[in-house]
Design a protein around this nucleic acid. Structure first.
Length: 724
DNA sequence: ACCCCTCGAGTTCT
DNA sequence: CTCGAGGGGT
């Protein structure tokens, strides 16, 4: 969706007010009038929900448990005095009796990870090679791998306590899903009670909820006959059926379940993936019959091809084959990278392709000024979804593929999600089609758009950027969206749509304007609540959401500024090193001269090199950026980044350096292990290092450690210390 | 001087 | 999710 602005939009200078909220001592509840109570209630709801989200989803609570309890208590008091405020919108309804309109969120005890993908045979052999080298297994050592079809459904997590189904949830974002227990209980393949002598006290069973193909067709026939919604494919039908608020409806839908894995478990009935899954079958689950234990790459690939041949004849949809290292001790040693395990991979079937006509190319302007071409396509169904847009990435990509407007092009959904344009079908090219000429000026503000030259490589950057900066309305809007977005300032109710209209109407032009919105609205004749689509409640909620972010963790604030090359992680690094914005700004200004300590300090931070440091320096060198930050700080207080709240291991929060040859595990394993225990692994010894683990052959790092008086231990001592 | 991995930035659709 | 760039190690 492109932005459509009147091209010559004047840059709006908005009055900036000093604004202070009256955070004076809270009134005793009985003295409040209904309006005050409603206001405070709304404010508390937003604040509590924000904390909940940070706690459950981001794993980064920003207040103490005690303070959080205070907020909940205050909310309870107000609701007791003004029961009308107890609504579905209140987080208190989660613990209260009122049934929520949505499903309750459930946090998975062990996150539900996603799998890395393999598309070619080579990716599979690479995977096995990586596993062997990570584990230091010789090429001829046996390495059993379990292969099973990847069912195209939705994964679910079933928590059994004492053998009884306690909670069933969807995968959600992997960390937190929705509680759909009553719905899952209607599925015949899901036992409510597990039978067996080796059933653990507590175990989370994981598997796939799906709908068989013929059941899906029958359901659609029935739905059509009753004039109800028909589903695009079995997966959508399964998802729609599972997420019914009325479990009675789910019961009438022919859902099935294959068990294939587990999350938290108080104990396990076996020491290999295949044996544990076999135990699931004994306990009463259905497991997939095409599961096979293989011992070589050839065998895995043969099984893949066998399944691929049988694919059409199978009673359910599948989109690939999953390979899992069978031995659980090896799985544990392999651990995980980012959010997928290193011991499993999904070998996908080739993506479905379709052809359609390229009817146009839009150019979007990003917050950094980047011009991104987006293909406008004649709508076409690919993999069960109608695709109308597809990114063309950049200028070079269009030239490389030589796609022209009017061309018939091949489209596929890569990794099953993002549509990709593979290229034109030349035989179908209209005779008058001309090569696409990428605009050299910004389509929104008309400024020159240039490809910067990378100072390191001397090569041109792939992206062309609008040089309009401040005067480009598209950039201004995108920056504001970024500022308010969930991982940045996280201002609820100030979404993309709102920002676009507020900007267009001159209400918000710069970040600081967000925080003066309420005060200006109070004086304005044209009130927000009179705008179309707005009411008194939504305005109150918005102001409450804004107020809730008048204090934010420094890392969020820095990320929100949108400094080039400073994303979430780098913002955290900066926040950890400089305890407030002013300190960072002073350091950046000082570093501009490259004399004195400031520049060296900046580049010394692990993860920050000259390019990133330069971006920070340049940001604060701009007068308008400094004044934007200054104005923001009139309204926003930053707080220090809370230290990593991690496992109570002895090395949690410590910075560890591994050096020399490690004999029991590889370097990668050591790093993964330390990180699992909440430690930060650094590459070189500095004053920030807490612990050095040295193997034989350690050299300069060991010397440096003793100079700095840092504790050095051996690999064996490391294992003792972390209790492994 | 390269190679690998992580991070940033941009994107689609339900 | 994917691509390219940046950082850091070899």
């Amino acid at each position: 969706m492109g932005l459509h602005f009147a091209c010559q939009m004047s840059f709006l200078a908005l009055p900036s007010f000093l604004f202070e909220i009256d955070m004076a001592s809270l009134k005793a509840v009985p003295e409040m009038d209904a309006q005050e109570a409603a206001d405070e209630h709304a404010r508390l709801v937003v604040e509590i929900e924000g904390h909940d989200r940070r706690y459950y989803q981001d794993d980064a609570p920003s207040i103490s448990d005690g303070d959080y309890d205070e907020l909940r208590k205050r909310l309870g008091e107000i609701e007791e005095r003004f029961p009308a405020l107890k609504g579905v919108a209140s987080p208190s309804s989660k613990v209260g009796a009122a049934p929520s309109e949505r499903f309750t969120k459930v946090r998975h005890a062990v996150p539900m990870l996603s799998l890395a993908n393999a598309f070619a045979d080579e990716d599979v052999t690479d995977f096995l090679g990586r596993v062997r080298s990570f584990l230091r297994l010789p090429a001829d050592a046996p390495l059993p791998v379990l292969a099973e079809p990847k069912i195209d459904g939705l994964s679910a997590n079933l928590l059994y306590r004492g053998g009884k189904l306690a909670v069933g949830a969807t995968r959600g974002d992997g960390t937190e899903g929705e509680d759909v227990t009553p719905n899952l209980k209607t599925i015949a393949d899901i036992p409510e009670q597990l039978n067996g002598t080796d059933v653990p006290d507590t175990i989370e069973i994981r598997g796939e909820v799906y709908m068989a193909k013929d059941d899906f067709l029958a359901l659609n026939t029935r739905q059509a006959a009753e004039g109800k919604q028909i589903f695009a494919n079995p997966r959508n039908a399964a998802a729609g059926s599972l997420r019914q608020l009325d479990a009675g409806i789910t019961a009438k839908r022919p859902l099935r379940f294959f068990a294939y894995g587990w999350g938290e478990a108080s104990s396990l009935p076996a020491e290999s993936q295949s044996d544990v899954v076999a135990a699931f079958a004994r306990w009463g689950f259905v497991t997939n019959p095409l599961t096979r234990l293989c011992t070589s790459a050839e065998e895995l690939l043969a099984h893949y091809r066998a399944i691929e041949l049988e694919r059409g004849a199978l009673p359910y949809d599948i989109d690939g084959v999953v390979y899992k290292i069978d031995a659980l001790d090896l799985q544990r040693r392999l651990g995980q990278v980012a959010r997928s395990p290193r011991w499993a991979i999904a070998h996908k079937f080739p993506a479905e392709k379709a052809t359609t006509v390229l009817i146009g190319i839009d150019v979007q302007v990003g917050r950094t000024g980047s011009l991104t071409p987006v293909a406008k396509l004649e709508p076409v169904t690919v993999g069960g979804v109608v695709v109308q847009n597809a990114t063309l990435h950049n200028e070079d990509e269009i030239a490389r593929r030589d796609v022209r407007i009017g061309d018939t092009v091949t489209v596929q959904r890569a990794g099953d999600v993002i549509p990709q344009i593979l290229g034109p079908i030349l035989e179908k090219r209209p005779s008058d089609a001309v090569p696409y000429v990428f605009p050299k000026t910004c389509p929104v503000c008309g400024s020159h758009a240039v490809r910067e030259v990378n100072p390191r490589t001397g090569r041109e950057d792939v992206v062309r950027r609008c040089t309009g900066g401040l005067i480009c309305p598209a950039q201004a809007v995108e920056r504001l969206k970024h500022f308010a977005s969930r991982n940045a300032m996280d201002i609820d109710g100030l979404g993309d749509k709102q920002i676009e209209t507020f900007y267009r109407d001159g209400l918000i032009a710069r970040p600081a304007d967000i925080f003066t919105l309420e005060a200006r609205d109070a004086r304005s004749l044209k009130k927000l609540k009179d705008r179309e689509g707005w009411g008194a409640t939504s305005v109150r909620n918005l102001f409450a959401a804004i107020d809730a972010r008048r204090t934010v963790p420094l890392n969020r604030f820095l990320f929100a500024l949108g400094i080039r090359h400073v994303g979430e992680i780098t913002a955290k690094l900066l926040a950890r090193h400089y305890k407030d914005v002013v300190t960072l700004q002073e350091a950046a200004v000082e570093a501009a001269s490259r004399e004195g300590r400031a520049w060296n300090d900046l580049v010394a931070i692990d993860g920050i090199g000259p390019i990133v440091a330069d971006a920070v320096v340049e940001f604060f060198a701009e007068e308008h950026n400094r004044s934007a930050v200054e104005d923001l700080l009139e309204h926003v207080t930053t707080e220090e980044l809370a230290g990593p709240v991690s496992a109570d291991s002895t090395v949690a929060g410590k910075t560890v350096v591994f050096t020399g040859t490690l004999e029991r595990i590889t370097r990668d394993e050591a790093k993964a292990m330390a990180e699992r225990l909440g430690a930060k692994v650094a590459g070189s010894v500095s004053s920030k290092t807490d612990l050095v683990v040295a193997g034989p052959g350690a050299g300069s790092k060991l010397k440096k450690a003793s100079e700095l008086n840092i504790e050095v231990i051996s690999e064996d001592e490391w294992f003792t210390r972390v209790g492994a």
